[in-house]
C-alpha cells in the first residue's frame, strides 16, 4: 500500500493538470491536455533523431559528472584527512560555492568552444562542489575509535586509508554523487537552452520558440524520466557497493 502513495500524488497532480487544461480558463498553448503531451511524448520515442538528441545531452552530463566524481573524491578525501590541503582549498571551495557557475558559461564558450567541451566543463565545475564538500565531510568524520584501533593493531597509514577511511567515507561519496547527478543534467539542459544547436535543451527552446508547449512539456517529462533513471541506477550501484549500510539512513 505504501508503495502506491507516490503514485497517488502523481495521479492527483496529473488530474489537477487535466482539469485546468479542460476548464477553458486558459489557452491550450499554456495548459495543453495530457493527451497532447502524451502524443508528443510517444512521438519522441518513435523518432531516432530525437533519441540522438537525448543521447547528446546524456553523454555531456555523464562526461562532466564522471570527471567531477573522479577529481572530487580525490580532493574531498585529501581535504578531509589533511589539515594542510584543507587549509589550502577550503577557502577556495567555501568562498566560491555560492557563485552561479552558469554565469561563467560565456567564458567557457570562449575557452572551450561552442561544442560539447564547454558544456562538459561547466557540468564538471557545478558537480565538483557537492562531491568535494560531502566527501570531505565524510572523510573528516571517520570514527576516531576505528582509526585508533587500526593504529594499535599496527596498520600502516596507507592501510588505514584503504581499510578504514575509504569504506567509512563511501556512503558520503555516494550521497555527494546523488546530489551532483541531477545537477549535471540540469546544467547541461540549461547550457543547451542558452547556446547550442543540439541536445534536449535545444529541443526545449526550439519547441518554446515554436509555441509548441505540448512538445516542450513532453521533453520536460523525458528529462525528468532520465533524471529518475540515473538516480535509480546510482542507488542500485550504491546498494551493491555499500552493502553494509542501508540507504534509509540517508533520510534520518
Amino acid at each position: 500500500m505504501s508503495r502506491l502513495v507516490p503514485f497517488v500524488l502523481i495521479g492527483a497532480a496529473l488530474a489537477g493538470w487535466e482539469i485546468m487544461a479542460r476548464s477553458g480558463l486558459w489557452s491550450p498553448l499554456l495548459f495543453p491536455s495530457l493527451a497532447n503531451i502524451g502524443y508528443e511524448f510517444a512521438q519522441f520515442f518513435s523518432r531516432t533523431d530525437r533519441l540522438l538528441e537525448a543521447w547528446t545531452s546524456l553523454h555531456r552530463a555523464l562526461g562532466g559528472f564522471a570527471l567531477a566524481a573522479t577529481t572530487g573524491v580525490v580532493i574531498g578525501m585529501l581535504m578531509g584527512r589533511s589539515a594542510f590541503v584543507a587549509g589550502l582549498l577550503d577557502p577556495l571551495f567555501s568562498g566560491t560555492y555560492a557563485v552561479p557557475k552558469l554565469a561563467l558559461f560565456p567564458i567557457f564558450i570562449f575557452a572551450f568552444g561552442i561544442g560539447s567541451l564547454s558544456k562538459v566543463a561547466l557540468v564538471f565545475l557545478e558537480c565538483l562542489y557537492p562531491i568535494v564538500i560531502i566527501t570531505c565531510h565524510g572523510a573528516r568524520g571517520v570514527d576516531r575509535v576505528l582509526l585508533w584501533s587500526a593504529q594499535n593493531m599496527g596498520a600502516a597509514r596507507g592501510e588505514i586509508l584503504r581499510r578504514v577511511v575509504v569504506p567509512a567515507t563511501v556512503p558520503f561519496i555516494f550521497a555527494g554523487f546523488r546530489v551532483a547527478l541531477p545537477v549535471a543534467l540540469i546544467v547541461v539542459i540549461m547550457t543547451e537552452m542558452v547556446s547550442s544547436a543540439d541536445g534536449l535543451g535545444y529541443q526545449v527552446i526550439y519547441a518554446l520558440a515554436s509555441l509548441k508547449t505540448d512538445r516542450m512539456l513532453a521533453l520536460v517529462v523525458v528529462i525528468a524520466l532520465l533524471g529518475w533513471l540515473l538516480d535509480k541506477a546510482l542507488v542500485v550501484m550504491r546498494d551493491r557497493l555499500v552493502y553494509w549500510e542501508k540507504l534509509e539512513t540517508y533520510y534520518v
Binding site: 560565456p106 568552444g113 561552442i114 547550442s196 544547436a197 527552446i205
Partner: peptide, 24 residues
C-alpha cells in the same frame, strides 16, 4: 541550414569575438 551548416544561438555581445576567434 542544419545539414550543410549549423545555426548556433548566442548573445549579440559575444558575436564579434566569436567570429574573430573562429568559434563561428
Amino acid at each position: 541550414p542544419d545539414k550543410d551548416a549549423k545555426i548556433f544561438p548566442m548573445g549579440f555581445p559575444g558575436m564579434g569575438d566569436a567570429v574573430r576567434t573562429g568559434k563561428i
